[in-house]
Every structure is written in C-alpha cells, then in structure tokens.
C-alpha cells in the first residue's frame, strides 16, 4: 500500500509536467496556428508558399526528430558550442530551483510549432468552408474586415472545427510523452525510472492517468459541441 502511494505521488508529479506541457502548448499553438493559417491563405504569393513549405516540413518530419533539432541545433550553431537550453537548465535550477527548465522550454517550442502547423490546416479548412456569402453580407452591411472575421466568421469556424480539433488535442495529450527523449521528466519518464529498478507495473498504471485526462477532455468537447448546437452552419 505504501509503495502504491509512493508510486502514485511520483507519477502525479510527472503528470503535472505532462499537464503543464499540454496546456502551454495549446496556449501558444492555437494563436500561432491561426496566424499561420492566415499566412498560408495570403494573397501575397511568396508568403503563402514560404509558409506552405514550413507546414509541409513540420508535418513531414517526426515530432521526436523536431525535439532533437530544437534542443541540439542552437548549441551546434552557436560560437561557444554550448547548448543554450542546457545553460537555461542550469540558470533556472540555480536561480529558482526548477529542474530541467531549459529542456522543458525546448520541448514547448517544438510542440507549439508542430501543433500550430497542424492546427493551421484545420483552421484554414474551417475558414475556407464558410460560404462566401457570409463575408459578402458583412461587406454590404459596412463591416470592417476585422468585424467580419470576429463577429461573423469565427464562431461558425469554431463550430465546424471542434471535431478535428478535439482529435488533434487528444493526440497532443499522448504526444507529450515524447518530451522524455530530451530529458523532460514527464509521467512516462517517471514510470520508466521505476521500471529501471525492476518495478514494471507503474508503467501500466501511468496509462490510467492518460485515460482519465482524455476522458475529461472528451466530456468537455461533447459539452462544447452541445453548447453550440443551437445553430446550424
């Protein structure tokens, strides 16, 4: 029993890192994704194609590899050869007592960029699926472009993209486990450390945390969908 509580507590600590990574990735990737979606729809051809290529690269390379690239490349390119994220690790540890802060930030950057690119395609699809008549109705009523987007288009897009977004967001919950490859101590990493000491079951037990989290998210998305069911697009 004591061991179970011990393991649960350690896993919860790891799960805290998982949740933090999840929430912060969403906070950064959703606005960034919206921006990228606008840029890939830009009327200025060079901008449009540059960002289409970026989306292609980010979606085309494994997220794990992107983690390595974000974490190691800046150090390799710097004159001193020191890894800035490693230095940040030390700085945050000595100044604030935070473990692995630099690695965490590297992960956050890679995740945010990666998910922003996926989201941007969902947003683009959503925005382009709204009939042109909606924009035209706004125009003839004298609305500005901003008003048309925020007051007319956005809520319709939100309704349309909730199913694909919930899919992507649930995938993100589980993708956070990749952070361990550059040494972020999230829940699987914690469980793995038990496994290294011949205690295997925490590894399976960690799955329960993901299941509960995804269950809560599923309920949340169901609730939002229901909330928005008062109108049809």
């Amino acid at each position: 029993m004591n061991q179970f509580l011990n393991v649960t507590q350690s896993l919860l600590e790891g799960f805290g890192v998982t949740c933090l990574l999840f929430v912060l990735t969403l906070v950064f990737s959703i606005p960034l994704g919206l921006l990228i979606s606008f840029l890939t729809m830009s009327k200025i051809k060079p901008i449009k194609y540059i960002f289409k290529v970026i989306v292609w690269i980010v979606r085309g390379v494994p997220l794990m590899l992107q983690l390595f690239i974000v974490f190691y490349l800046p150090g390799m390119l710097s004159e001193t050869g020191l890894n800035p994220f490693g230095q940040l690790d030390n700085f945050l540890y000595f100044e604030y007592g935070i473990d692995n802060g630099g690695r965490f930030i590297a992960t956050l950057i890679a995740f945010s960029l990666n998910y922003a690119c996926y989201f941007s395609e969902i947003f683009r699809g959503g925005i382009e699926s709204i009939p042109k008549g909606q924009t035209e109705a706004g125009k003839v009523l004298g609305m500005t472009k901003g008003q048309i987007f925020f007051k007319v288009i956005l809520m319709q897009v939100v309704k349309r993209i909730i199913p694909p977004m919930s899919n992507e967001i649930i995938t993100l919950v589980k993708d956070t486990a990749l952070a361990r490859v550059i040494g972020v101590i999230e829940i699987i990493k914690v469980a793995d450390m038990f496994a290294a000491n011949a205690l295997i079951w925490p590894l399976f037990y960690s799955g329960v945390f993901y299941l509960i989290f995804v269950g809560v998210l599923t309920l949340l998305f169901g609730f939002i969908e229901k909330k928005l069911s008062y109108y049809k697009v």
């Binding site: 009939p131 008549g133 909606q134 035209e136 109705a137 125009k139 003839v140 004298g142 609305m143 500005t144 472009k145 007319v152 809520m155 319709q156 309704k159 109108y231 049809k232 697009v233």
Partner: peptide, 23 residues
C-alpha cells in the same frame, strides 16, 4: 477601405441565398 465602407452603406442588398448569420 473606410471610404468604400461608408459608400456601401448607401445601398442595402438582399441576397438570393439570404446569407443570414446563423449564430
């Protein structure tokens, strides 16, 4: 754009497909 918006307000347009705001 602002001038055009102001001029647009001289006219109302009713569309074939209504284009009401569903939300």
């Amino acid at each position: 754009d602002a001038q055009i918006r102001e001029k647009t307000l001289n006219f109302g347009l009713v569309f074939q497909s209504f284009n009401l705001f569903p939300q």
